[in-house]
Amino acid sequence: MTHIAIFFWAISLQFFCFPAAAQGIDPHLVYEQNCAGCHVPHAGEFVAENLTISVGELVGKGSKRPVSDLLATGHGKLSEPEIEVLLQHFSTIQETGNLFRERCIYCHDRAVAFARGDLILRDGTLFGRYSKRNVEEFLPGHGRLDNPQAEMMVDVLKRQLNTP
């Protein structure tokens, strides 16, 4: 397969398997431009303070109303792809239990800023941009993270680098 064929194959795979990513939608930017004016400045804080999982669905803590329903009715005036990206972002934050916010934010910037500014992904492995340390090897024990938490944090940081 030629380099050009591989390139087009990779682009088409991304388009069909990851439609939101192919559109270049940054969930952080969507939240900050459309939600932060009325809610807290960052999605991580918003999820921690306002959302929970009920019967397998992301809902408001107080209203118990599904977030997907609220956004679908026009709250935030988001497009369908933006809603999809934001719901995935909120769900991922909820699933990780705000681990970055609880353990890392004291020394590092927000996860997205830290990952995009200080880390690099090479051949699927996360490295410190300046220290050149393998993050997967470094994290267990760092910031009092146990091995499962370190693995989860690596996934969180990789996701920050894999979103546009």
Rank of each mutant, 00 (worst) to 15 (best):
D69I: 07
V135I: 10
F8T: 14
G62D: 13
D123H: 06
L70E: 13
V112N: 14
G117Q: 01
G44T: 13
G62K: 13
G124A: 11
F8C: 12
G117C: 03
R101F: 08
E151M: 12
G76M: 06
N134A: 01
G124N: 08
P140K: 00
G37N: 07
E32S: 14
E102I: 06
L145D: 10
C104S: 00
E45G: 13
K132M: 02
R133W: 06
H142W: 05
K64Q: 15
A150Q: 05
P66M: 12
A36G: 09
I83M: 12
R144G: 08
A21T: 00
E151D: 14
V59C: 12
R116N: 03
V135F: 05
A20P: 02
E95L: 13
P27F: 10
G37S: 08
Q149S: 03
S12K: 01
L126V: 03
H3N: 06
V30W: 02
P148I: 05
I53R: 06
F7V: 02
N34I: 09
F90H: 02
N147Y: 09
E137T: 12
N134K: 01
G97H: 09
T73W: 04
V59R: 12
I6M: 11
D69T: 11
L71Q: 03
G74V: 14
T52Y: 05
V47D: 03
E45Q: 14
G143W: 04
G37V: 14
D123R: 03
A48P: 05
H142V: 03
H75V: 13
S131P: 10
I93D: 04
C35F: 00
S68Y: 01
A111K: 05
P81V: 00
A43S: 15
V85T: 04
T92P: 08
P164S: 12
L70H: 11
A150N: 09
R110Q: 12
G124C: 07
